[in-house]
């Protein structure tokens, strides 16, 4: 398309593998169409690199429509780039100006080790989910879907939390690399819904325990997480997690959770 184009400079973190040293490399990409997405710009760069015989820059990505949570990238000091409420794959080059230098880094946190270049290992999130991010219900034998009425406002708030795509931007932005926003989104969703009620204590305790075991930090209520969350999940859910956790820790009747 004969639209507007810009020239940009990039400083990108390159690292051959986990536990290997990494460093920034500089690149230049010219005639970048402003209609390109940021990842398409990287595709173009990678095709050029590959043709030159250099290993392309590895980065995670998949759906490219902002929902799978696979893409990451810490762009100019901000997870998913400078705009609000979107993922990196939804970021377009028109956001940048001609001649600009863009610094691209991987998510950094002890619990997210770099696998290669900009690709990090986020399986710690899966393990937090495995600790309790579910309702223990087997397939079949469940009541009719309309058996329990749930007020619209409650369902809507649960949906606000449920929108989390598990990308890890919250951890990347947090000065403490805390995964409280991620953990709270699931705890909050299931605490709001009657279906999640039976296990709410066990869930809050187990998920926080796993969160800590993975080496994520504590929440300092800075709010950087909600500012960068592509799904704009609010830290009120962290407050709800704190409430759930406190209640589970200090109320009686904790027989449903032994460790």
């Amino acid at each position: 398309m004969a639209g507007k184009t810009i020239n940009i400079k990039l400083k990108i973190w390159r690292q051959a593998g986990e536990n290997k040293p990494g460093k920034f490399e500089s690149y230049e990409v010219n005639d970048v169409s402003v209609d390109m997405s940021f990842l398409e710009m990287l595709d173009v760069l990678n095709e050029n690199e590959l043709k030159k015989g250099s290993d392309p820059i590895h980065f995670d990505h998949d759906c490219r429509e902002g929902i799978c949570g696979m893409c990451s990238l810490y762009i100019n000091g901000k997870p998913h780039g400078p705009k609000h409420g979107i993922t990196t794959c939804q970021l377009h080059m028109r956001t940048f100006s001609d001649g600009e230098t863009i610094v691209v880094e991987p998510w950094r946190a002890s619990a997210f080790p770099v696998l290669k270049d900009l690709v990090v290992d986020r399986t710690s999130f899966d393990r937090i989910m495995q600790a309790g991010g579910y309702v223990t219900v087997s397939t079949g034998g469940v009541p009719d879907a309309n058996e329990i009425a749930i007020p619209k406002t409650v369902a809507d708030e649960a949906m606000d939390a449920a929108q989390c795509i598990g990308c890890g931007a919250c951890v990347a932005a947090c000065k403490n690399a805390s995964a409280m926003l991620f953990t709270s989104a699931k705890v909050s969703q299931l605490a709001l819904l009657p279906q999640g009620g039976a296990e709410r204590k066990r869930r809050a305790l187990a998920m926080v325990e796993q969160h800590d075991a993975e080496g994520f930090g504590a929440c300092t209520n800075t709010g950087a997480c909600e500012a960068v969350c592509p799904k704009e999940i609010s830290i009120t859910h962290i407050a709800r997690l704190n409430r759930e956790f406190t209640r589970a820790s200090f109320s009686g009747n904790e027989t449903d959770y032994q460790n």
């Binding site: 579910y134 309702v135 219900v137 397939t139 079949g140 469940v142 009541p143 009719d144 879907a145 009425a149 749930i150 007020p151 619209k152 369902a155 809507d156 649960a158 949906m159 449920a162 969703q189 299931l190 819904l193 279906q195 999640g196």
Partner: peptide
């Protein structure tokens, strides 16, 4: 039924 039991937050009307 299954999805609701799992905690899938489907859209609801004002009656819940």
């Amino acid at each position: 039924d299954q999805c609701v039991a799992q905690g899938v937050p489907f859209a609801r009307d004002y009656g819940g």
